[in-house]
Deep mutational scan, measured.
Amino acid sequence: IEKFKLLAEKVEEIVAKNARAEIDYSDAPDEFRDPLMDTLMTDPVRLPSGTVMDRSIILRHLLNSPTDPFNRQMLTESMLEPVPELKEQIQAWMREKQSSDH
């Protein structure tokens, strides 16, 4: 029984630690959010139409349809242009958020 109590305490400790580690990014500025999924972008790319999306989301879309989801023009992965300035701004915002939450 004592071992179970210790195990339960350890589990509670881990759960509390994980809860502290989770950071809420739901208040991200609109320009940091993917327009299709409304999630925080981690690897922004510009489509030929000028729309900026997260790379993982547009690549997932391209698996089903080789088109720009906003104007239905033909689109391939090679046409995606990285946006390193925005990526750095997002990373800086995330770092600031992490340091203010801890």
Rank of each mutant, 00 (worst) to 15 (best):
I1V: 06
I1R: 09
E2G: 08
E2H: 03
K3Y: 05
K3S: 05
K3T: 09
F4D: 08
F4I: 11
K5V: 14
K5Q: 11
K5I: 07
L6P: 10
L6I: 10
L7D: 04
L7P: 08
L7I: 09
A8T: 10
A8D: 09
A8V: 09
A8L: 10
E9Y: 14
E9N: 03
E9K: 09
E9V: 07
E9M: 05
K10A: 08
K10I: 05
V11G: 10
V11I: 06
V11M: 11
V11A: 11
E12A: 08
E12W: 03
E13H: 10
E13S: 12
E13V: 06
E13G: 11
E13Q: 08
I14R: 05
I14P: 07
I14S: 10
I14V: 10
V15I: 13
V15Q: 15
V15D: 09
V15P: 09
V15G: 09
K17W: 08
K17S: 04
N18G: 05
N18A: 08
N18S: 11
R20L: 14
A21G: 07
A21E: 14
E22R: 07
E22K: 05
E22L: 13
I23R: 10
I23T: 13
I23G: 07
I23L: 13
D24E: 15
D24Y: 12
D24T: 03
D27Q: 12
D27Y: 07
D27A: 06
D27S: 09
A28T: 14
A28S: 13
P29E: 02
P29T: 07
P29L: 06
D30Y: 07
D30V: 09
D30N: 07
E31D: 12
E31V: 10
E31Q: 11
F32Y: 11
R33C: 03
R33K: 12
D34N: 02
D34A: 00
P35Y: 03
P35C: 00
L36W: 01
M37L: 14
M37F: 01
D38R: 01
D38Q: 01
T39I: 07
T39P: 01
L40P: 04
L40Q: 03
L40G: 04
T42V: 07
T42P: 04
T42K: 05
T42L: 09
D43S: 03
D43I: 01
D43A: 04
D43E: 13
P44H: 00
V45G: 01
V45F: 00
V45L: 02
L47A: 08
L47M: 05
L47R: 00
P48T: 03
S49T: 10
S49G: 05
S49F: 15
G50C: 03
V52I: 12
M53I: 15
M53R: 01
D54G: 03
R55S: 04
R55P: 00
S56C: 08
S56A: 09
S56Y: 05
I57V: 13
I57L: 04
I58N: 02
I58F: 01
I58T: 04
I58L: 04
I58V: 04
L59Q: 09
R60Q: 05
H61G: 00
L63P: 04
L63V: 12
L63A: 15
N64F: 15
S65V: 02
S65T: 04
S65A: 04
P66H: 08
P66L: 09
P66Q: 08
P66F: 04
T67C: 07
D68G: 00
D68V: 00
P69S: 00
P69Q: 02
F70V: 01
N71Y: 01
N71T: 15
R72F: 04
R72Y: 02
R72G: 01
R72C: 02
Q73E: 04
Q73D: 05
M74N: 05
L75P: 00
T76P: 03
T76N: 08
T76S: 09
T76A: 06
T76D: 06
E77D: 07
E77Q: 06
M79K: 06
M79F: 05
M79R: 06
L80F: 10
E81Y: 12
E81L: 04
E81K: 13
P82L: 02
V83A: 07
V83E: 11
V83K: 05
P84Q: 08
E85G: 13
E85S: 07
E85V: 13
L86I: 08
K87T: 10
E88D: 11
E88G: 15
Q89K: 12
Q89P: 03
I90A: 05
Q91A: 03
Q91P: 01
Q91K: 10
A92P: 02
A92D: 14
A92H: 10
A92C: 03
W93L: 04
W93Y: 04
W93G: 02
W93S: 02
M94T: 14
R95A: 14
R95S: 12
R95T: 14
R95N: 06
R95E: 07
E96L: 09
E96S: 08
E96R: 04
K97T: 13
K97M: 15
K97N: 15
K97I: 13
Q98V: 14
Q98R: 15
Q98K: 14
S99N: 10
S99H: 05
S100C: 11
S100P: 12
S100V: 12
S100G: 13
S100R: 09
D101G: 13
D101H: 06
D101I: 06
D101S: 05
D101A: 08
H102R: 11
H102L: 10
H102Q: 09
